[in-house]
Amino acid sequence: MSRIGKLPIEIPADVNVSYNNFEITVKGKFGTLQKSIPKIIQIEQDPKRLVVKLHNQTRTNRALHGLYRTLINNMIVGVSEQFKLTLNLRGVGYRATVQGQLLILNLGYSHPVEISIPTDISVDVVQNTTINLKSCNKETLGLFASNVRSWRPPEPYKGKGIIYEGETIKRKAGKSGKK
């Protein structure tokens, strides 16, 4: 049995979980999320917690057991607390603004980069160089953050680029380090 998969999932008081026909729906104060579950996985629901169970004990089934337990837990945490990511812009002249459903980035290119913001993600720009992202869906939040970061990934020589908060970049010496 998967070590992660056998852990019970605690359900907060303000979250409503329903499961039928291999479809799980989680409703909370920050939104509603749905996910289809494979037939090899069963969910037992108590009033305060969920337990994810497995039919067959093969290697791939045990991996799916832990995966879907984590996905369901992320859904419950997301609709009750929301996930947050912070991106920092490092570089001379790098800045960001939000106009409607567009995130506009000035990243040293000859033109501003316009990225459309998904409906379930809220974007807040602080002091032109810090982008705060919030969403109840962890998967779309991470995908959007990686899409933004892909426009100017951090480089090791000067440390410029779009950097996740708390990330450290290993710096290289460059030409002068050759001696």
Rank of each mutant, 00 (worst) to 15 (best):
L103P: 04
K48N: 09
T86K: 03
V98L: 10
P156Q: 15
D46H: 09
V26H: 02
T60W: 13
S150K: 10
F144P: 02
R49K: 13
M75T: 06
R152S: 11
L54H: 06
Y19V: 08
I40D: 10
H55N: 15
L107K: 08
K6H: 08
L141W: 00
V125R: 07
G5K: 10
I169F: 05
V92M: 04
K6M: 13
I163Y: 03
K29D: 02
I121R: 08
L141T: 02
H111L: 06
P154Q: 13
S2C: 14
H65F: 10
F22K: 01
T32K: 10
S122P: 01
I104M: 12
F22P: 00
I117T: 02
K170N: 10
K35V: 05
T60K: 11
K27G: 01
N61S: 15
N147L: 07
F30I: 01
V98K: 10
P153Y: 15
E10F: 12
E139H: 09
T32C: 09
D46V: 01
G31F: 02
V77L: 11
E81L: 01
R171P: 00
V79P: 04
S150I: 14
G177Y: 00
Q101C: 10
A173W: 01
P38H: 13
V125W: 06
K84E: 07
V15L: 09
I41K: 01
L50T: 02
G177W: 06
N16R: 08
N16G: 03
V79Y: 03
I24V: 11
Y94I: 03
P12M: 06
K170T: 08
L33N: 09
T119V: 14
R152E: 06
V77A: 02
P118E: 11
I115G: 05
A13Y: 12
K160Y: 05
K29S: 09
Y164M: 14
Y68L: 11
L103Y: 13
R171S: 10
I121Q: 06
G78S: 03
N137P: 05
I40G: 00
N56V: 12
I4Q: 15
N132L: 11
T168G: 07
I169K: 08
E139F: 12
F30K: 03
T60C: 01
L141K: 04
Q45M: 12
K138Q: 06
K170W: 00
S80F: 12
R95T: 06
G28C: 08
I76S: 01
V123S: 09
E165H: 13
S2K: 13
R62N: 15
L67D: 15
G177M: 02
G108A: 04
G78H: 03
P38Y: 14
S116E: 15
Q82M: 08
A96F: 04
